[in-house]
Design a protein around this nucleic acid. Sequence first.
DNA 1: GCGGTTTATACGCTGTTGCGTATATTGACA
DNA 2: TGTCAATATACGCAACAGCGTATAAACCGC
Lengths: 83, 83
Amino acid sequence: MEQIARTAKHIGAAVRRRRRQLNLSQEQLGSKIHLRQATISKLEAGEPATQLRTLLDALSALDLEIVIRPRTKASVADIEELF
Amino acid sequence: MEQIARTAKHIGAAVRRRRRQLNLSQEQLGSKIHLRQATISKLEAGEPATQLRTLLDALSALDLEIVIRPRTKASVADIEELF
DNA sequence: GCGGTTTATACGCTGTTGCGTATATTGACA
DNA sequence: TGTCAATATACGCAACAGCGTATAAACCGC
């Protein structure tokens, strides 16, 4: 339930996972926060130039939050496994 | 050491806190990741249109990572206190 | 108070978002 | 396999990030 994310792709994957968990389509999620389905698609695809606002709005609608903490010793391989 | 961040301002504050902890100037942090001092300034100011790439690059240089998880019950007031 | 450092802000430029709108592509399942 | 939902992608547009460069403003120790 806790996803470590070090890249935009990780973040996108976490968003997608949660959205599906909640049985929402990109369209439905988008309309909750006034973003287009295409925008959600790019966010989930891990587009690194996505705006912070877009991510935060999505997280909010998905009842997710971000925690910022010192990096754990988990290797990159360990993290990739989660995705 | 774990910062909950639900807004761009929270994120910016966490970045700034860590940067200072490591005794880096915005200039120094920026040059590590090929971003201008002005860009770091905006990130720390909590500009919500900042690009994800910018944040992730900064976190990487600061040896920080993001965790995405379901929102805790902590009230907004509780979170604001941290900042 | 001063001088030096650090941070905020400005201008013109290029690149890219997210928009509206629309259409391919893919996926799921009867 | 056919069909409808869901997702990816496209075009032109307005808005704005981040760039180089530069300067104002705020901070700090002495």
